[in-house]
Structure formats: C-alpha cells, structure tokens
Simulated assay, not measured.
Amino acid sequence: MSSARTSAAAVVLLATAAVGLSACSDPGANAAGNNNAPSPSATVAGKVFNLSPQQDRFPVTEDPAAAALVPDAVKADGKLTVAVSPNAAPLAVYASDSKTPVGNEVDIAVAVAQKLGLKADIVPTSWENWPLGVESGKYEAVISNVTVTEARKEKFDFASYRSDKLGFYAKSDSPITSISKPADVAGKKIIVGSGTNQESILLAWDAENKKAGLPPVQFQYYDDDSASTLALQSGRADLTLGPNATAAYKAANTGQTKLVGLLDGGWPLKANIAVGTKKGNGFAKAAQAALNDLIQDGTYGKILDRWGLTAEAVQHSELNPPGLPKK
C-alpha cells in the first residue's frame, strides 16, 4: 500500500454500513457499530489501514502564496479549527485509543492546514451540528463528506476535494462484472437505503427499464449492515448500492465484495465533496489554493490512496462549483 510509514501497529476497523447512507449527508448515518474502537487485526484482502493514534502522515511543506490568502481572523491564533464527524471509516473514525480522530478527512484537514502555515485543530462533532458551528465561527472549516448543493451555497463557501461517488458492489465471486447503465440492473435484487439519494437514482433507472419492457429491480431494505451482508453473501441479493467510500473500505477489509460500477452521487449530475467555510469570509479561496498545491505535489493522491479512495480523486479543486439543485 502507498501510505505513510506505519511504525505504529496497523489496525483495521470492522466494516461500517455502506448501504444506508445518503450521498450528501452524514457519512455515518445508520452505520452499525461505527463508534466502537477498532481492535488490532490484519486485513485478508491485502489492504492495511492504520487506525492507530500514531498516523505518521505524509510531510507537507507550507505554500507561502496560499498562506497569504488566509484571512487575518483565521490566522490570528495560528490554528485552523476543523469540524469532522468520526462516524465512518475510511472518511473519519476514532482510532484504537477511542479518542483520536483519524481517516481521509482528517488527513486532508491536517495537510490543508500545513500548506497554509497553520496547525490543524481537529474537533469531533456530530454531522448535523457542523452548519451552525461554521456559521457561528466555532469551526473555521468543515471537512466531513459534505456535498456541495445550491441550498448550502447560500450559507457557505466551498473548495472541492473529492468526487461524490456511489458504488455498486457484488459478492467477490459474483458473475456480475459491470454495472454502467439502467439495463444492467434489470431484474437484479439490489440492497439500497430507504429514502436515500441512491434509492432515488435506482428508482429512476427502474422506471426507465419498465418503460422499455425490462424486468423490474427487486428492491431490498435492511436496518443493519450485518443483515445486508448476510443477504449478499447468501445470494438473496445480487448487489448493494451506496456511497463508494465506505463500501470500498469494507471490500478492502473483508475481501468478500467487489466494485462493479460507479455513479456520480448526483446522477445524472456531477456531485462534489468540499471543504465548507463561512460564507464571504474568504477562507475558501485559501483552502482551494492549498488543495491545488497538494494535488500538484502528489500529496493529495497519496492521501486518497492510503484510504482506498483513489476512484474519487479530482484533478483540481474548484471554488464554489455547481451544486446539486434544490429539491
């Protein structure tokens, strides 16, 4: 694995649920046991995740040009206060000490802060509390799987750093190898979270198939990850559809599932995951500059690879990119 040094014990977290998450909401919603501390273990799929408190992150050099863009109010104390929700690996989760947030979002936060000549102050918070915290100035940024929407852009500024992707996953020995269009899901038994963005997309695909005279999708809903995993492994279900990040982590950990298709989280529109900041305070521009420097020097790619998220990489950070439309 291309990652930072793992002088501390490399450990893995038992899989968190992937099927019940909305593509633009709390990454830990409906996750089974996602607040439990991980126990030392080795993966069986060849991907090792370091979830110890000692992360030995990739070295980052300050970018003076980007640092010059940081508003005085933010740089005053030399810290960048970032809200994260440690509810779902590999995005953010508590380490094996049950108190230190680690994960992709934490690594991004630390790297952005260092590029800007600041020290990251990572503040764990429940996902639903970040909007008020950012608006009030309690948090100078949120890095917590936040999808850009037009409604959110009315209150916050954004600098994108990841594509919002949904993944179709099948049992590792399934004959299904590719899902790329509505016809591919016709007649399939698919596990999806009720009321989620991914369910809406799958319903649209199913409607298109029915108009074309194709067999309907057989929708399956489960309240917990254990039940959905059993359904997939036993053959009662053919596929799951949910946020790719957590599903990819689970696949790497267990070796029991495989990715067979990716969708934009806002299908048919592109959806962006972004650093969120208070509207009009100027920090989003600095975050964008830091992210683009991290992309150019290769650190960004190493961070995503470290957490198994290379498929969600962006070529460059955008300032307030088009958001998903209001419903």
Rank of each mutant, 00 (worst) to 15 (best):
K285M: 04
A313N: 09
T246E: 10
A92C: 11
K285L: 05
T177Y: 01
T16H: 13
L239C: 07
M1W: 10
V142G: 11
A31W: 10
P322S: 03
G235R: 05
N320T: 09
L319C: 00
L241C: 05
A207E: 15
E154N: 13
P59I: 00
T196N: 00
S178F: 05
S178P: 02
A311H: 05
C24K: 05
T16F: 00
A252H: 12
K327D: 11
A15Q: 09
G280A: 08
A23N: 12
S228W: 13
V84H: 07
K75R: 15
E135G: 11
A73I: 12
L21C: 05
K79I: 10
S7T: 14
F49R: 04
A183S: 14
A9L: 13
V275A: 03
G133W: 02
D293A: 13
D293L: 03
L304W: 04
R152Y: 07
A113Q: 03
K210H: 08
W127V: 03
A284G: 09
S317V: 10
A9K: 14
A287R: 04
K270R: 14
G137L: 01
L262R: 07
A284R: 07
T125F: 00
N253C: 06
E154T: 12
D293N: 15
A45R: 08
F219S: 00
N281S: 05
Y161T: 06
Y300G: 08
T61D: 11
A231M: 05
A89H: 07
A73T: 15
L69E: 12
I273A: 00
D173F: 06
Y139F: 14
G298C: 09
A4M: 10
A109S: 15
W267M: 01
K211R: 15
Y249K: 02
P64C: 02
Q218Y: 02
P175L: 03
A204C: 06
N30Q: 15
V123Y: 02
K211A: 15
D97V: 02
S194T: 08
G242S: 10
V93W: 05
V93K: 07
V102P: 03
L118G: 06
W307Y: 13
V217I: 15
A151L: 12
S174C: 10
P38F: 06
V260D: 09
V123G: 01
H316E: 14
T246S: 12
A313C: 03
D63P: 03
V44E: 05
L14G: 11
A271I: 06
N145R: 03
K115H: 04
S39V: 14
N292M: 10
V19C: 07
L166K: 03
Q296T: 15
W130P: 02
N197P: 00
Y222G: 06
A89T: 12
L324D: 03
Q55K: 09
E208Q: 15
V112Q: 08
Y221E: 02
N34L: 11
Y139I: 01
G213T: 11
L80Q: 07
A227R: 11
D238N: 08
G213S: 09
K285P: 01
A141D: 10
L116E: 08
